[in-house]
């Protein structure tokens, strides 16, 4: 049981909402990972649907490259749609 792979767990809280990352579990295979996810993360009615994926199958960005990846966006304020004048009839934007 020490060599069980790690699985990332995504839970959909309600119909219509996105699955969100809830945490991770160890399990010998995908079916047991779903059971472990159910027993670990939906004990208090947190969800209506669960996804699990092998942690090893997730491709992640390199934190060391954060500067090159994300900082250039900081100076592009025009990418936020905040320069438009909205008509009166459009509320809650």
């Amino acid at each position: 049981m020490k060599d069980w792979p790690l699985w990332e767990v995504f839970v959909r809280a309600r119909g219509g909402l996105d699955h969100r990352h809830a945490g991770s579990v160890h399990a010998p295979d995908a079916d047991m990972a779903l059971r472990h996810a159910r027993d670990t993360y939906t004990r208090r009615m947190e969800g209506v649907s669960i996804w699990v994926v092998r942690s090893a199958d997730i491709v992640a960005s390199d934190p060391a490259k954060g500067e090159a990846l994300f900082e250039p966006a900081a100076s592009k304020i025009y990418r936020h749609p905040t320069f438009y004048e909205l008509p009166e009839a459009v509320n809650h934007m």
Binding site: M1, W4, V25, H26, A27, R35, H36, D39, T40, R43
Partner: peptide
Amino acid sequence: APTIEVDLSLSN
């Protein structure tokens, strides 16, 4: 239990 996950399952 053998692992924390199984511990939770059995408790459930």
